[in-house]
């Protein structure tokens, strides 16, 4: 039962990676990375029970918090670089998706 759940979560992580590679805007990629992070937390929790190592749960907790801070940091970085280089790389990918 748990193994099936772990595989389902792994497949979801692969789908998130596909979205991260496809883009098209930076925000799609950040969304995918955020999804990948929260799914990692779930995967660690499920793996802790499959392997009988419940001390893994502390890692899941730490990962949940780090993932949140990480996403906010990346968003801040994107915003700052857009301010400094209005025609820079991150802005370009956004306009591309706007024109679709």
């Amino acid at each position: 039962m748990l193994l099936v759940a772990a595989i389902a979560i792994l497949v979801t992580m692969a789908l998130a990676l596909a979205r991260a590679l496809l883009g098209p805007s930076v925000y799609d990629r950040v969304l995918a990375v955020n999804m990948f992070g929260t799914k990692t937390v779930l995967l660690i929790a499920v793996m802790a029970f499959i392997m009988g190592r419940t001390d893994f749960l502390d890692l899941a907790l730490a990962y949940a918090l780090i993932n949140f801070i990480g996403v906010l940091a990346v968003l801040w970085f994107v915003q700052e670089s857009r301010k400094r280089h209005p025609s820079g790389n991150s802005a370009q990918t956004t306009t591309e998706s706007n024109m679709e």
Binding site: Y27, V30, V41, L61, F68, V71, L75, Q79, T94, N98
Partner: peptide, 23 residues
């Protein structure tokens, strides 16, 4: 933690995209 942080992160993401002009 997941239920508090994930909507907050999602809001930050959606709001950043909106302010950046993604329609």
């Amino acid at each position: 933690f997941l239920l508090v942080t994930s909507p907050t992160a999602t809001y930050a993401l959606a709001n950043a995209a909106l302010l950046a002009g993604l329609k």
